[in-house]
Design a protein around this nucleic acid. Structure first.
Lengths: 246, 246
DNA sequence: GTCCGATTCAAACATACGTTTGACTTCGGG
DNA sequence: CCCGAAGTCAAACGTATGTTTGAATCGGAC
């Protein structure tokens, strides 16, 4: 009765199969409802497993959530770093152009989005949502699993954009992660606001990321703001001389 | 015993005061833990009110959350539209420059962040978090309360950037809302990743938004990607001819 | 065939949740 | 002075949660 869900033979290891089914079901449900609003009962029911299986295989609900993230996030970040390393090797000591560094950040996400067998776009939505989650254990997890990649890319951007002050670069990387996460989280309601037809992106996350790349590059290489401007005078054009209006 | 929390005389209306205290406490707690993870018991305890007061004054937990958002969001969006209207009036028929339109989006958020009496930056964090929340009632609320503003600004941007295809503009506005929300949500963990010292932003959301403005403008006005490129060839530079590497 | 560790299972555990109830208090107006 | 609506309050409601328990079952190794 138990193996009814599994497609082919589950080999000699039904246990590992259960663990995997729970991971898949948890990924889908966490993605749809968020961490707090998803119950272990809903997960185990969807996975065709017993309620106690989660605590047996993962220890707790929080550890299950971390396992769901870790399964796909670590490989993606490793791929990002590997791509950047390759670019730096090809550049032979010269700085890697900024647009290529941006591509190295985005392409692994694109590959993941294109591969339904690895969770497809669903996982990216879950990830984007995790960025905004206030739970301390999630924040701790993300900072641990992103630290190395971010540091590497910050170095690369610093060399590609020598005129951009270090502190400004930190902020712009922050903005980049924001636009990226938010876009991936992709709540339908906001898409609706922008009147983006479903056909424009339905499953086509590749197109989405292709549009995102020039946007991020444009923001990253934008002229600096005049931070000495008097407060309250923000409507003065930042980085651009006052237009003919007014 | 009840009025001990209230600073000055609460006039003849202790009821409205209770409602306001609940709103304030809910805003702080929702901001800190999110909607699902915040209990009505924690809110009423922090507000010095009875548990049943929430259901009496607001009807339900969801309606309380909407009231918390509505109190500050509606005025902010109205101010955004008012600023844009003023700019369009001053432009006398000519398109308003894109950088000024960006400023009109950002400045009201900046003003709110600078005013602790109106919730300060805390509310903006709560708002940023709401963007990523999957709960249907939140998505419905946001789409209703943002629709008018987004439509107005999309029109303005379309006139300021006549060479940017309409569909591309929709996407870039989406990205802008993403970077904005995410930045405002500002989880400490991610700041930590980027090694941004606390002194860089402690309470100084003005500086943050000043840095954000040129970034958004740069992304908005970035050159278009070549969407006809062969799939999988993303490491070819988007919008920029292939560099010397490779 | 028998044993043992690994796994599965139904059931119960102890809390915590949002909401409702019905009595009590407050207070301005007749 | 008393009335009645508005507000407050303690208590309970029913349900849902994550976790634990201890017995049942399984799958190879000897």
């Amino acid at each position: 009765m138990r193996g009814a869900v599994v497609s082919i033979s589950e080999g000699r290891n039904g246990a590992a199969a259960t663990k995997a089914r729970i991971l898949d079901a948890a990924e889908a449900l966490f993605m749809e409802h968020g961490f707090e609003a998803t119950s272990l009962r809903a997960i185990t029911a969807a996975a065709g497993a017993n309620l106690a299986a989660v605590n047996y295989h993962f220890g707790s609900k929080e550890e299950l959530f971390e396992a769901v993230l870790k399964r796909r996030l670590d490989p993606m970040n490793q791929r990002r770093v590997a791509l950047l390393t390759q670019l730096e090797h090809d550049a032979a000591g010269r700085p890697v152009p900024a647009d290529r560094v941006v591509s190295a950040m985005i392409m692994p996400a694109l590959e993941l989005a294109r591969d339904p067998a690895r969770g497809g776009a669903n996982f990216l939505r879950l990830l984007g949502r995790a960025y905004a989650d206030p739970a301390p254990f999630i924040r701790r997890f993300l900072s641990v699993h992103y630290a190395e990649m971010i540091a590497r890319f910050k170095e690369a951007f610093a060399r590609a954009l020598p005129n951009l002050p270090r502190r400004e670069l930190s902020w712009r990387l922050h903005f980049i992660m924001g636009a990226l996460s938010y876009t991936l989280a992709g709540t339908d309601a906001l898409k609706l606001i922008h009147e983006i037809a479903p056909s424009d992106d339905g499953g086509n996350d590749e197109l989405l990321l292709r549009r995102l790349a020039p946007f991020l590059l444009g923001g990253l290489t934008a002229p600096l703001a005049d931070l000495d401007e008097a407060p309250g005078d923000l409507d003065g054009a930042p980085g651009i001389p006052p237009g003919p209006s007014r």
